[in-house]
Nucleic acid binder design. Structure first.
Lengths: 362, 362
DNA sequence: CACAGCCTGTTAAACGTTTTACAGTAAAAC
DNA sequence: GTTTTACTGTAAAACGTTTAACAGGCTGTG
């Protein structure tokens, strides 16, 4: 019963060539005659030979694996990214190994270590904080690497791919402001995360410029249920705003759940601008107006940069910034002049508190 | 600049021991003295040594990797599963490498081959068809393996973990029937997939027994947008049913989207029972009544079985079946007696067509 | 005291590839 | 006609581990 593994030797023997030739046929490192190639292929097929990745990798040092580290595998945004990456990786002959840091900086480090132990030919990282994960610093030089989505603010020493988060916030705010909304709440996940901070900044700046006061910013975390509770709690003890901007797909869910629980209709009395674009957003009676992130483009750009690096490109790091767009559906209403005045007075009433909340953020 | 990789040799030299000892310290295969262990650990830390997986795996034949093959990485159900598996795998010191077959039987084979090339210590497979993927048959004996969710019908020669699909269909149907619905459409993804077929079977049997006729079964595929179009198309040319049972989370989305597009309210005039339980289902004014699959339990059961197998358990294959439950929210209405009669007459009218559609399924 | 048995550590031989260095042959250049 | 050059194939040496076989120092027992 002891079925020995079929190795390159067996194939070589059966095809009547040296093992080096077999290797060359499979790796394509050196040209080999057409008929010999044929013979080798046939022999391999007959024995159902598969090259052993471990051996191959050990000798060559090359892995044909890329590690993908994301903060949360339950968040559609990240899994969509992973899904796209998997497709492109497969097309280029790479396998991906995924790890989730579960938004824990300690776990991030440990997961990173295990990813590095694979000696992958590249890494795509969505860090869980602004800090460049320790242990990665001495790898920058040798290991192709792309940071996506949550890129450390300021110039980076690695390639980065992200959306224009500040602009995303602006777009959402502008839409609401143009329709007369002044009393706007910004539902962030966690302002410690730089892209979120940027989105808040973009929205806040525009709202302040137009409405004369910073919006209230609340943090709902990255878990839909807990965020729902948090927002419910907030709604209980504050005046109801005329509009909410949710800055992630999870906070969008939290916002909608809380409003649904209180049987507050959308868009009247409360308008909502969500984030991301997923099928469930249009599977509702009042479709959700939302900021669309170009997930496919983000994934494509990240992979493209990584591919370049993996094939030896050593040019200075590049920061790719992609644009978001507004997907208008039915969850934002136009405020009548009367309602606007009403909203305005809310602003005045809440001015002080608003400022405090916003200050906490900046 | 030529930073040579730091190997076990370097650590051994620095700690003043043999490489075998270093290996033993890290693998724990043989006991080593406490102080020596300390010395080795320190040396390793100083040099920031990491064992090379490739070398380790080549020599030992053991991989500490499990391959996970899913049909679609854009489907929340599968990514939730992957997410849970990743957590448990990590806890047990395994890494996972994921591959998507994208519901293509050819791709499934090829992805499987690449997974096997890793010589993983185990495999968790959600097949994309009833057929056991070719190339896997000669691995059954040596490679620990668990099939999940889409298990081939009838007894299997591998461990399987799945829900009671037939019962799931029944539960949905019973709920509707009890509330007086008779004119029910079953929105399946693809009846070629055995669990779907089972769900249809369960629902159909009960509906036939109670309403006297099989329900209409329509196939909406596994893509939300295309499913929406398909259902829209169907709705255009058929009498509107009083209720819809959606048999996957994607068909649930398609159903809801189509109804929303036609501005048909839920639950009146059309009630809906969805599938799976995700945050977006309660983030709506009329929360969605749905069949809840215990995803965490499925993942846990699959991992547990795999873990057992990987540690040498050779008992005969086990088929684990988990129960679903009905999550009642607001998307199903109780039909008044008058409406019931009305629905009843529809049944009679559509009897013939209904039967044809259902026949196509069985 | 001698000897078996245990404990801990070492040496050296794998594991299955890739790759370097080399050899042989055929074609091209002198 | 000899020397290059180009092209293909091979033998053998890595790659960094794990592990089988072995060795030496204890302890406990007869």
């Amino acid at each position: 019963m002891s079925e020995r593994r079929v190795t390159i030797k067996d194939v070589a023997a059966r095809a009547g060539v040296s093992i080096a030739t077999v290797s060359n046929v499979f790796s394509g490192n050196k040209p080999v005659n057409a008929d010999l190639q044929e013979r080798v292929q046939k022999a391999a097929r007959d024995l159902s030979y598969q090259v052993d990745r471990a051996a191959s990798q050990l000798r060559s040092g090359q892995a044909k694996v890329v590690g993908v580290l994301v903060p949360d595998l339950d968040d559609v945004f990240f899994t969509s990214l992973v899904s796209q990456l998997e497709v492109m990786a497969q097309k280029d002959g790479y396998d991906i190994i995924v790890a989730s840091s579960r938004d824990d900086i300690g776990l991030e480090q440990s997961r990173l270590r295990t990813l590095l132990a694979w000696r992958p030919s590249g890494l795509i990282v969505i860090p869980c904080s602004d800090a460049v994960p320790a242990g990665l610093d001495n790898e920058f030089a040798r290991l192709p690497m792309v940071f996506a989505d949550r890129v450390p603010p300021g110039g980076s020493i690695v390639d980065t791919v992200a959306i224009d988060n500040c602009e995303a916030g602006e777009i959402a705010a502008r839409h609401l402001l143009e329709l007369g909304h002044r009393d706007i709440v910004v539902a962030a996940s966690n302002v410690a995360i730089s892209p979120i901070r940027e989105r808040v900044r973009g929205a806040s700046a525009l709202i302040r410029a137009t409405a004369g006061a910073d919006p209230t910013v609340i943090e709902l975390g990255s878990n839909a249920e807990r965020g729902t509770e948090a927002f419910l709690h907030w709604l209980e003890r504050h005046k109801r705003p005329s509009a909410v901007i949710a800055l992630t797909n999870v906070t969008t869910l939290s916002t909608l759940s809380a409003l649904a629980r209180l049987r507050i209709d959308i868009p009247d009395p409360v308008s909502v601008v969500g984030f991301d674009d997923y099928p469930w957003m249009s599977a509702r009676k009042t479709g959700l107006t939302a900021i669309r992130q170009p997930i496919a483009e983000i994934a494509a750009a990240a992979w493209e940069r990584l591919r370049r690096r993996m094939s030896g490109d050593a040019s200075p790091p590049l920061g790719t910034v992609l644009q978001t767009s507004l997907q208008v559906r039915d969850s934002v209403r136009e405020l009548s002049p009367a309602a606007r005045d009403d909203a305005q007075s809310h602003d005045l009433l809440q001015d002080q508190e608003t400022k405090t909340a916003a200050n906490a953020v900046h």
